[in-house]
């Protein structure tokens, strides 16, 4: 091995470790915190390696059984935040809403993208630019009016209200993304189908869509992640566990001075799991879809 290439090798590996530590360190730390008793977190300097690994915090969230570690000291016992147990219903709400938003995105954005990438019609460019730039409207600008609209529709504190607004904010991106993606798919097969007597709708459903699965998956994943993460509208429009989402609950826990950090860590870990599932499900498609779309 040459000296230069060894130095290169060393440099690349050291930098990778630094980047990995920065990127994953916070996750590892939160995970370690979720496995310790509250009292073990309150030491100076912190225990770099947990003294005692327990699953009590997780058990508390799932069953309501108060962790034994809390009975050690009276003062700390009061820091058990009942609120943390709401994480499960709120996660279910977030997940349901995000799935619905994903479905709406595919149903609305792919036909629109089909029209934009395949046909010519009057007003096409203005319409396209209008749809895309609508995403640039800051959420804060329409938050108040949107609250009153939802109120007058009697939809306050429903999942439907969030599904609507999240779709409004994701469909423009999905349309843009899919228009680019469809544009890269060769039309020969569609032409062949049309010549064979398919109508454009059939060509779209049975020929184009199956070929566009990577792009559709990437768009679906983006829509899911956006909806799952959205905070401002969720904060304004939800009131009870009927529609309250994970992001609202976690923000409320974070601002609760009595919160148990061990339980908060458990909530964070649980909130990340659905994203890992989605990521695992779509892992090959997202980068591929993104690469094809942006770099023809």
């Amino acid at each position: 091995m040459k000296k230069g290439s060894f130095l290169n090798f060393l440099l690349v590996h050291i930098l990778s470790v630094v980047v990995l530590l920065f990127v994953l360190g916070p996750f590892i730390w939160i995970f370690l915190c979720s496995l310790q008793g509250e009292a073990d977190l309150f030491v100076v300097p912190p225990n770099w390696i947990p003294k005692r690994v327990i699953l009590d915090n997780y058990r508390y969230i799932f069953t309501g059984e108060i962790p034994t570690a809390y009975e050690v000291r009276g003062l700390i016992r009061s820091r058990i935040s009942q609120e943390a147990r709401y994480i499960l219903p709120t996660l279910l709400n977030s997940f349901t809403i995000a799935l619905a938003v994903m479905a709406i995105n595919l149903a609305l954005a792919s036909p629109a993208a089909y029209a934009f990438s395949r046909f010519r019609f009057a007003g096409k460019t203005p319409l396209y630019i209008y749809i895309i730039t609508s995403r640039l409207l800051p959420a804060m600008a329409i938050a108040i009016p949107f609250y009153f609209i939802i109120q007058s529709l009697n939809l306050l504190d429903t999942k439907l209200s969030l599904i609507l607004i999240h779709s409004v904010y994701t469909v423009p991106f999905s349309t843009w993304f899919l228009t680019l993606y469809f544009g890269e798919i060769p039309r020969d097969v569609e032409f062949a189908a049309l010549v064979d007597g398919c109508n454009p709708l059939q060509a779209f459903l049975y020929v184009l869509l199956p070929m566009a699965i990577p792009g559709l998956s990437a768009a679906a994943a983006f829509a899911f992640v956006f909806s799952y993460s959205e905070f401002l509208f969720s904060l304004l429009l939800t009131q009870t566990l009927k529609s309250r989402t994970m992001s609202v609950l976690i923000a409320s826990l974070a601002n609760n001075p009595d919160v148990s950090y061990a339980l908060l860590s458990v909530c964070v870990v649980l909130a990340i799991i659905p994203l890992l599932l989605i990521g695992f499900f779509f892992r090959n498609y997202v980068t591929k879809g993104m690469t094809i779309t942006i770099f023809k």
Partner: peptide, 28 residues
């Protein structure tokens, strides 16, 4: 016919976005 079909394809997305951006913006 193709043009009509295009408008039909774009309509749902455009309608959803318009209802929940133009009206709120004017309201704001």
């Amino acid at each position: 016919k193709e043009r009509k079909f295009s408008y039909l394809l774009v309509l749902p997305a455009a309608a959803l976005i318009s209802i929940f951006t133009i009206y709120p913006l004017l309201y704001a």
